[in-house]
Simulated assay, not measured.
Amino acid sequence: MDTHRLLIFREVARTASIAAAARKLGWTQPAVSQHLRQLERQAGLPLVIRHSRGIRLTEAGTTLLRHADAIATRLHAAEEDMAALAELSAGTVRLTAFPSACAILVPSAMTDLARRHPGLEIRLAECEPPEAARLVAAGEADLAVLFSHDDRPPDHGPDLRLIPLADDPVRLVVPAGHPAATAADPLARLASTPWIAGCPSCAAHLTRTCAAAGFTPDIRHSTDDYVVVQNLVARDLGVALLPQLALDAYRHPDVHVLPLEITDRALHLLCHREALRIPAVTQAVRALQQTATARRRARR
């Protein structure tokens, strides 16, 4: 199949519109439609179904899109390889991470990279793990920092590589002076207390943790913002579980933090397998690993 047409098809698939793809590519809509029809003839199968609001992919189109994403990543790898050879490890890394990682891990890694490889450019976008994984799978990000709970690694496709990064202890956060702060089994004292939950993954982890302690949490509030969580806790509007990374990023003076004997949150790096051939991505992975290792040693 023609690689150029595959990349045009990828743009049509990603925008779900021939017209939108044409605008993004700077082409006319008939030209894009013609390339799409020629690609369908080469494939021997319809790739899209046209409707009044754009297009949707057929099963064949969905399958071909996965290969088109891999080709786009491979082409990006080729560009970065050439830049590294010509400019001594020059290149760009499109990095995405969840908020507390953006606050703590990523800045240290970026500083280290800037010191050791001043030619590298890091472009950071803040995203929660599901969106970050989607960006990597689509070839729109090179590297993502993700988290998971209870030894349940994030879902990822066969073309992606999941790299363990670090453990992030989960803590119990209660108002200062709360009776649970001095209890032998603090969770048991909170069965009738309002709780604050975070993202769907964090809320599910909270529910499993409380179930193991013998109760179902009364979740009154939901927010992904660890600053908001601690402000709510400080005003005695609920209690919460927060990872150490979030507490390192911000610590309210009127909350009390307690360790728990539960599974830590696991941190991971996610990238396309082909992206590990890109020198800039390899350097970014190394910097994040070294930052995570230094942070773990500092906690001991």
Rank of each mutant, 00 (worst) to 15 (best):
A191P: 07
M110Q: 13
A138M: 11
R123Y: 08
P194R: 07
T193F: 01
L190I: 05
A184C: 10
L187P: 07
P200Y: 10
S148I: 07
C199N: 09
C199I: 04
L124Y: 12
V174R: 00
C202N: 10
D159Y: 02
A183Y: 12
A181F: 00
V106E: 09
P129C: 03
L120T: 00
P175C: 05
A184D: 15
E131R: 15
P158Q: 06
L105Q: 00
G177W: 11
R208T: 14
W195H: 07
H205I: 02
T182F: 15
R171T: 02
D150P: 07
R134S: 12
M110R: 11
A132V: 00
L113I: 07
S108H: 13
D167N: 15
C202Y: 02
P129R: 03
P164V: 09
G119D: 07
D112A: 14
A191Q: 08
V174L: 03
D168S: 08
G157D: 15
P154D: 04
E126W: 00
L105P: 00
L113E: 03
L146Q: 06
R152D: 15
A138G: 12
L187W: 04
L165K: 06
A132E: 03
P169M: 03
P118G: 06
E140W: 08
D142M: 10
E140C: 10
T111P: 00
L165G: 06
H149F: 15
A133P: 12
C127Q: 13
P194F: 03
G177S: 10
V173D: 01
D159I: 02
I122Q: 02
S108Q: 13
R123C: 10
P164H: 15
I104S: 01
D155Q: 15
A183V: 13
A181I: 00
D155N: 13
L124I: 13
L135S: 11
P179Y: 07
D167Q: 14
G139R: 02
H178Y: 06
S201W: 04
E128T: 04
V170S: 07
R116S: 14
I163T: 09
A180S: 12
M110K: 10
I163N: 01
D150T: 09
A141W: 02
L120K: 00
C199R: 08
T193I: 06
P130Y: 08
H117R: 02
D142C: 13
R208D: 13
G139F: 09
R189W: 14
P154R: 06
P194G: 02
D151S: 15
R189N: 12
H178S: 01
I163P: 01
P129N: 04
F147T: 09
D168T: 06
R116E: 12
L162T: 05
E126T: 10
R152K: 13
T111E: 12
F147G: 08
P186G: 01
P179H: 10
H149P: 01
A204Y: 04
P153K: 08
V145D: 00
P158R: 10
R123M: 11
G198Q: 03
A166Q: 08
F147P: 05
R115W: 05
W195E: 05
L187N: 10
A166N: 11
D168C: 06
H178W: 03
E131M: 13
D151W: 12
A204M: 04
W195M: 05
A103H: 03
D159R: 06
E121F: 09
R161W: 08
L120Y: 05
